[in-house]
Amino acid sequence: MLRNNVSLLMKGRRLSGKADPMWAIPISLLIGSILTVYPLPHFLLAWRPDFMLLLVLFWVLLQPAWCGVWFTFFVGVLTDLLLDNIIGLHAFLFVVLLYAVRFLTRNKRMLTFFNLWGIAALVTFVYMVLYFLGQRLAGNVLPLWYWASLLPSILIWPVLYAILQRWRGV
């Protein structure tokens, strides 16, 4: 069964042409940054998905040969700069979250689409809870609509996956 799945996976990889993510990674980050800072009217602001988190999750889970801890760290610092946060906050959150994800999924041979979607939803939720706690510790009370970006983040994952699937490494 397992062998069968692995061979299917390999066939999928061959069909997808074994695309080299050398350029896909920086370009996806560039587009992600643009979407993160693109000016929106106030009522739409809270609904913006966490593009950077989803991107870093995709690359670290599905292209581990290229993207590791320091990639996560770099994207975190970039996110902090884009959002004008204290530098290192997102870097810390991303590194801790992604380490936890890779540790907990170390025995999962198959990362199917639905597995990944579930992981993405869970990671986004945990990220929002951690960020919320961090802001509470810093004395900032977040409004209720802070949680609004959870649903768009979960819904955008299939789109992101469909676009980036070509560069999936494992």
Partner: peptide
């Protein structure tokens, strides 16, 4: 490539997390 996913060691992650905290303090 398939097993590369498992090769996640604690040490670099810890180092990155500590660097991130150092950055926060510096900022």
């Amino acid at each position: 490539n398939i097993f590369a996913r498992d090769a996640q060691s604690l040490r670099p992650a810890l180092l990155a997390a500590i660097t991130a905290i150092a950055l926060m303090l510096a900022d």
